[in-house]
Amino acid sequence: MNPYERLQSLGLALPAAPRPVATYVPFVLSGGMLFLSGQGPRDGQGGYATGQLGRDVSIDQGYAHARTTGLYLISVMEMALGDLRRVGRVVKVLGMVNATPDFTDHPKVINGCSDLFVEVFGEAGRHARSAVGMGSLPNGMTVEVEAIVEVAA
């Protein structure tokens, strides 16, 4: 199955690729590699899912927010490449979690994005990853994820 068929089988539709909220571009394509700027869990109304893990957001909610963020990253991949079948491999993911100092389950949260990439891209969605905690994130969002993708020849 190709990524579009996998998205359909998951019952997922790609949202519109988000526009930058500051002075940056959503992606840079360089030397066969696609670098995706960080995205957060948009709520469909122009805002973000907000809060801190370990205080007012559960691990399951954070997982869902990271999954939503992954869907936005896939939208940016499509915008950049024109066709998701051009994704050769998801190489690296950096997941940042807005968390209290004592929160330690960052990987469980960012699995929401990682699991989605594997579901959509199969083995090509498996990637190296860092999942780290932050004291705050832009707009108070719960997670921010960026990725590096290899473009198929």
Rank of each mutant, 00 (worst) to 15 (best):
R85W: 12
F103I: 04
S114V: 09
G95M: 04
M141E: 08
G62V: 10
I59W: 00
H127A: 12
V97I: 05
Y63N: 03
G140F: 02
V93A: 03
S30A: 14
G140Y: 05
E144H: 05
M141D: 02
A49Q: 09
F121W: 12
P3N: 11
R6C: 03
T68K: 02
E144I: 07
V91T: 09
I148R: 03
T142G: 04
M77Y: 06
A49T: 02
M134G: 02
E119V: 00
D60L: 10
T69I: 12
V90R: 03
K108E: 15
V120C: 09
A80T: 09
L36V: 02
N139D: 15
G47T: 06
G112P: 08
I110R: 08
R126D: 11
P20Q: 11
P101T: 08
V143S: 07
N98Y: 06
E123Y: 13
V143W: 09
A131W: 05
Y72D: 09
Y72C: 08
F27A: 06
R55Q: 01
T50Q: 10
A153P: 15
E146A: 15
D83Q: 10
I148T: 13
G62R: 04
G38D: 12
N98I: 03
V21L: 13
S75F: 11
V76N: 03
M33G: 02
D60N: 07
P26G: 10
Q8S: 15
R55E: 04
S75A: 15
R89M: 08
E144Q: 14
G54R: 06
D60F: 06
D115W: 01
V145K: 00
V91S: 12
G11Y: 13
E119L: 10
T23A: 13
G82D: 03
Q45I: 02
S9I: 06
P138K: 01
V91I: 12
D105T: 00
E119M: 09
D83W: 05
L73W: 06
F117D: 08
S130N: 11
E5Y: 02
S136V: 09
F35T: 08
L10T: 13
R67G: 02
T69R: 06
V93I: 13
M33Q: 15
H106M: 13
H106Q: 14
V97G: 02
L137R: 07
E5S: 10
A124K: 11
V109N: 00
G135E: 10
L14P: 04
Q39G: 01
L10S: 07
V145G: 01
A22L: 05
V118Y: 01
R89K: 15
